[in-house]
Amino acid sequence: MASSTSPRPAHPLRLGLMTLIGRAYPRLIAGNREPDWLFYEATLPLLRVIAFVLVYRALGAPPEYTGFVILGGAMMAFWANVLWSMAGQLHWERQSGNLELYLMAPPSLLWILAGMAFGGMLTTLTRAIFITLLGTVIFGVTYQITSVPLLAAVFLLTLIALYGLGSMLASLYLFYNREVWAVQEMIQEPVALVTGMYFPVRTLGGLAGSLASLIPMTLGLDAMRQLTLGGQWIPLLSVPVEIALLAILAVGFVAGAAWSLRVIERLAKIEGRLSLKWQ
């Protein structure tokens, strides 16, 4: 007589980590398997960066502004990844019919998002390094790195906060359908403006710059520029203050993502939005 055995449930942490690796895997493999990413995701974005550098050259800007643009262009790759591959991802999964499968699986959706974030970060890092290296070589930019540990801390905190923000948006988008695409397009360029992606954020004015600090990219870029580029430009805040604020943002956005995902998933179930398509 056949005996029915039920599999022993995995420890929640082990299950979570397995989910993280499982979801990060396609990001890493699919993102790098074909070499065409070099063209679409690194070389062509670099051309846009070059255009901004040439604007500064036409305006007779000091050389450190070239470094400004290159760092901004590299970080823009992360913002684009957060926006299109994190924030919009649950929406795309719903369109392709995968979202129901995610929700039926035993791990929390947060682990799945963490996997996407981890895979996305590593994949985008290769693009960002490519853009930085090539931009640096083409324009002969020199960096004056004052502290490698601080630079690493700023970079990591910026990424954690950014991907936390992306996870929050991902859950919010469960309430929307076709609007998601438009909302994504609407916020991509304004963020490049308010975070000072291509110019010192102080140029916006103290108040606007402070408000823009709610987006982690603003503080992260300003701190990274202070730690790598010299020159006479005026930063928004000092590096230690920016690190402290970035840490607060990172904790806030990750906790906010966990909370909003729980609440919005429940509301979306009540309103029957989890399997809505083409609305």
Partner: peptide
Amino acid sequence: AALVLVFMYRAI
């Protein structure tokens, strides 16, 4: 997009 350029111009 235009404002990004305006602020780049003003930065210089």
